[in-house]
């Protein structure tokens, strides 16, 4: 059993290593620009607002959690998973250079977390406002 477990672990690490693709690494600004492009197509779009993003980030939207429930009121600080208590690394790029460098990951986690916080997907406006806010947070 132990041998099987170890072999599986090794195999998984090997596959994970091969699957790691630095190719789609982007900068936070590029990711925000892509969301901007998406939002610009919606009627009445007047740009993103960091202030609106901050209030969106810190308030609840009819459900148990806000973004800050796990990421805390300070996005540059280490967060804590509201359910498991696990450490959540800072979400602001100023405090964590890995954040918002992988579009696929950003998309995935917006989908999951917006569903938990709002019970629906976030609009491009909401995503852009949130990123505008997070990008202004200093360490």
């Amino acid at each position: 059993m132990f041998r099987i477990f170890h072999t599986s672990c090794l195999a998984l690490v090997a596959v994970a290593g091969l699957a790691a693709q630095p190719a789609f690494a982007e900068t936070p600004d590029e990711i925000l620009a892509a969301i901007h492009k998406e939002a610009a197509g919606t009627p009445g779009f007047q740009g993103f607002s960091a202030a609106r993003g901050e209030s969106f980030f810190k308030t609840k939207h009819g459900y148990e959690w806000s973004c800050s429930s796990c990421h805390t009121e300070n996005p540059a600080a280490q967060g804590k998973h509201a359910k498991t208590g696990q450490v959540v690394e800072p979400i602001a790029p100023s405090a964590n250079a890995e954040r918002f460098t992988n579009p696929k990951k950003v998309e995935k986690w917006f989908k999951r977390n917006c569903n938990d916080v709002l019970g629906r997907a976030c609009t491009p406006q909401e995503k852009g406002d949130t990123l505008a806010y997070l990008f202004t947070v200093k360490k």
């Binding site: 696990q86 450490v87 959540v88």
Partner: peptide
């Protein structure tokens, strides 16, 4: 069962 739940040194977690 919940690594890092009570410790800050566990670090590295980024399950947002």
């Amino acid at each position: 069962a919940t690594p890092g739940a009570d410790a800050t040194q566990a670090g590295q977690h980024d399950s947002d």
